[in-house]
């Protein structure tokens, strides 16, 4: 069976799981709508480049919310359903299956978020300008892949600690701030500003805004790629640690 078939089947499976719970409507419609309205009216109905920057930030914030609430909880939910064992003893690579699920967990809210943002902007009669749409699209795809890798890392880390749900809540807004999605990163205290370097969304945001302005910042795109690779390496290592703990100590509950 081809690698892509395993990946796509896992992603479609997770999309079906996500679709079965109304949380994806909150993440894909209510959250971006609220964020967009607040930011637009707080800045007195911006237009042009400023509107594009805000729409981009809302897309990324909503996507990060979906990553934390859907992607990062995959393995904990698998453990709670008693299906984790089957995923880990399958003939297919458990990491590949998990990566597919991680993409599936966030793809539906991401598509819904994009539709919500586009519809809201149309209703507000607020035009956005994207000077390099091809680069902008590439940036969005990179952000989604980076979020998938982040989901892979977080869901493995959250299974290794009993404080997964608390960590998920604690990570949400700090990442918004560190990535510069709510306020410019320069506004952060120097003591924590450097942490933003490790958040790929920060560089994705910079690249998307630059692409929208017509001068794509390829350095930022490169950093998104490097950080994504780092998340993948970390995620695979954490997942292997889980596999080792389960098989050697028998101390994680399995089906």
């Amino acid at each position: 069976m081809a690698v892509t078939e395993v990946f796509v089947t896992s992603a479609r499976h997770q999309m079906a799981v996500v679709r079965a719970h109304p949380l994806f409507l909150v993440l894909g419609i209510l959250q971006p709508l609220a964020l967009l309205l607040v930011m637009f009216f707080a800045r007195n109905r911006p237009i042009g480049a400023q509107a594009t920057a805000i729409a981009t930030a809302v897309l990324l914030m909503s996507y990060w919310g979906a990553t934390v609430w859907q992607g990062a909880g995959i393995l904990r939910r698998e453990r709670s359903n008693g299906t984790l064992g089957a995923s880990m003893r399958g003939v297919r690579s458990p990491v590949l299956v998990l990566a597919g699920k991680s993409l599936g967990a966030t793809l539906l809210p991401a598509l819904l978020t994009a539709a919500t943002v586009a519809t809201t902007l149309a209703l507000l009669r607020t035009p956005v300008t994207i000077a390099a749409p091809g680069w902008y699209l590439l940036g969005l795809v990179s952000a989604i892949l980076s979020g998938t890798a982040m989901g892979l890392l977080l869901c493995s880390l959250f299974l290794l600690t009993r404080f997964g749900p608390q960590l998920a809540s604690a990570l949400l807004y700090p990442v918004f701030l560190l990535a510069g999605l709510l306020i410019p990163p320069d506004f952060l205290p120097p003591a924590v500003r450097w942490l933003g370097w490790f958040v790929s969304l920060r560089w994705a945001q910079q690249f998307l805004v630059s692409a929208a302005g017509g001068a794509p910042d390829l350095g930022s795109l490169g950093l998104v790629g490097i950080l994504t690779c780092g998340y993948i390496i970390g995620g695979v290592a954490a997942f292997r640690r889980i596999d080792h703990l389960v098989r050697s100590r028998g101390n994680l509950e399995l089906g």
Partner: peptide, 24 residues
């Protein structure tokens, strides 16, 4: 336990089949 409660029986069977190496 050991099943995806929010999915249908057919979807469960397809997914676990994929994990066990059964192609589409």
């Amino acid at each position: 336990r050991g099943l995806y409660p929010q999915l249908s029986g057919r979807d469960n069977l397809r997914f676990f089949g994929m994990l066990a190496g059964v192609n589409r």
